[in-house]
Design a protein around this nucleic acid. Structure first.
Length: 502
RNA sequence: GCUCCCAUCGUCUAGCGGUCUAGGACGUCGCCCUCUCACGGCGAAAACAGGGGUUCGAGUCCCCUUGGGAGCGCCA
């Protein structure tokens, strides 16, 4: 059953009444801006959808308006509860909230049918009995002759009495055949179609269910949506929807079709490079505020500014500044921005971020799905040094491996190179000095190491690198003395002893 | 094939006829800082797709070409 997972959010199917109320309120509020995000629950919330949601959210907030959420689940075959849950979860993680209850498009089917009935009665729509095979032939011959492939309107003015027996008809819009259909788009500008290029689209399927094209128009109208901001893959739909608005005598909302996001290679985003669900970005170690900041700059700009707090982007966001050309998704820049937000993030917050993705990424690293309290405490105290050099939460976790590594430590290639015989002999010198320390602190270990360096006429680095290798098993780490402080006296000394000359 | 949209450094973009010898950011490459790596600082290489117009003047306006993209379903 669809919707069980989110049944509590479900809206009653008897909507007309409720929407009448909404519209009355709209009149009272005069200039209230209402946007909507309308994903179809056939998969996760992908990155393009996330940006569309973000733009709608920003625009509504910018103008003190509301952003509504509508699940376009009229495709009963492909809509799933899991997808709905993933979309809601993704929006939540990104911090994008919506106003009012979630509207499920399918629940509004009766209203959609009623609207079509009205169109039928007013002669703006008609029954069409053309078979799938006829339609296919039309398309083929049109393409063959270099004409636009479209329905030829053969039932447009035909007497319904001529209907073949036993065939359930669809209902088509009686679209204008002359003149032009114009969409004044806030991003794309004025876009014009010759009506002869557009055919009579299907409003109601032969099983009586409403099509997307019809449902969108009716719902946007009933929900009193003032601004439709969506991907420009809908630009041609906008023309057909405009025709429906016209037939209904309704004023269309303001349209803004934003360019799509492409993969790094310029092709359409695929699962291989970026069309991941937003929850995948969470497991990849990105922070939601970083993803938002990255996304908002894809297509939209505000002078030379790159970093925007939520307040800043809300205050500055404007449709006029949205570009018309598609952008490519660039992980390098996302990482850079993520690094920026990581450095700024609260230490405890980052530990929490690690904990949330641990079930997915912990096992691969020899960690469980949860953090034991001792390690959590170490992570927290090492965090200032750790977050300074990590670009993702994953890097954070990996760079902290010395905190959860077991003795004797395995050395990576560079650490092995560092710990040659000379280095190990120097380690012995340092060890004896470190052992004399009574109060184990970063300041005191640093003092000890520097004393040894002075006495032996060595550069600090000649002692620090072997120590680092011994303590962390790697050639890079946070500040050495911070590492020792977090590790504690016993563990630190033991790790050094492990690497002494045989 | 048809319709529509797009075109400034590798990438995201600023530029809304003269202030452009085209600015910023990411990435790349140097140098500095330095116990490593990051961070930070300084510097470098790097773009107006091509061709026609319009104009005193074009990255900015128009047209064409080329190259991308989207749509063309009883999917959304």
């Amino acid at each position: 059953m669809l919707h069980d997972a989110v049944a509590s959010r479900r809206v009653s199917p008897q909507l007309p009444l409720r929407f009448e109320c909404a519209r009355r309120t709209l009149l009272e509020m005069a200039d209230q801006i209402i946007t909507r995000f309308a994903p179809s629950p056939t998969g996760y919330l992908h990155i393009g959808g996330a940006r569309t949601a973000l733009f709608n959210w920003l625009f509504a907030r910018r103008h003190g308006g509301r952003m509504l959420l509508r699940i376009e689940d009229t495709d009963r075959e492909r809509s799933t509860d899991a997808a709905i849950a993933a979309i809601l979860d993704g929006l939540g993680w990104l911090g994008l909230d919506w106003d009012g209850d979630v509207v499920y498009q399918y629940s509004r089917a009766d209203r959609h049918r009623a609207v079509v009935q009205e169109l039928l009665e007013r002669g703006r729509a008609y029954y069409c009995y053309a078979s799938a095979q006829e339609l296919e032939e039309m398309r083929e011959s049109a393409r063959r002759e270099g004409r636009p492939s479209r329905y030829d309107g053969r039932w447009r003015d035909r007497d319904p009495a001529a209907a073949p027996a036993g065939v359930k008809p669809v209902v088509r819009l009686k679209a204008p055949t002359e003149g032009e259909t114009v969409v004044e788009d806030q991003v794309q500008g004025r876009v014009v179609w010759q009506n002869k290029e557009l055919d009579d689209l299907v409003l109601l399927r032969s099983d009586g269910s409403p099509t997307y094209m019809l449902a969108v128009v009716v719902d946007d109208h009933d929900m009193a949506v003032t601004h439709v901001i969506r991907g420009d893959d809908h630009l041609t739909n906008a023309a057909r929807q405009r025709q429906i608005y016209d037939a209904l005598g309704w004023a269309p909302p303001v349209m803004a079709h934003i360019p799509l996001i492409h993969g790094p290679d310029g092709a359409k985003l695929s699962k291989r490079h970026g069309a991941l669900g937003v929850e995948a970005y969470r497991t990849l170690g990105y922070l939601p505020e970083a993803l938002r900041n990255y996304l908002v700059r894809l297509g939209w700009s505000h002078g030379d500014q790159e970093i925007f707090s939520t307040e800043e982007m809300t205050a500055a966001f404007a449709l006029e500044q949205i570009g018309r050309s598609p952008a490519r998704f660039d992980f390098a820049k996302l990482e850079s921005i993520n690094g920026h937000y990581m450095r700024q993030a609260d230490d405890a917050r980052l530990v929490a971020a690690i904990k949330t993705i641990l079930p997915q990424v912990g096992p691969d690293r020899g960690l469980g799905a949860t953090l034991d309290p001792e390690l959590e405490a170490k992570l927290l105290s090492a965090m200032p040094g750790l977050k300074e050099r990590a670009k993702t939460v994953i890097e954070l976790l990996d760079s902290a491996s010395y905190l959860y590594a077991r003795r004797p430590l395995g050395l990576d290639a560079k650490a092995t190179t560092i710990l040659d015989d000379d280095a190990r002999r120097r380690l012995a010198l340092v060890l004896s000095e470190l052992e004399t320390i009574s109060e184990w602190s970063a300041a005191n270990t640093e003092g000890a190491v520097r004393r040894v360096a002075d006495a032996a006429a060595l550069k600090l680095g000649q002692l620090a690198q072997p120590l680092r290798a011994a303590l962390t098993g790697r050639a890079t780490s946070p500040g050495l003395f911070d590492v020792m402080a977090v590790l504690g006296r016993d563990e630190s000394l033991a790790r050094v002893r492990d690497q002494l000359p045989a």
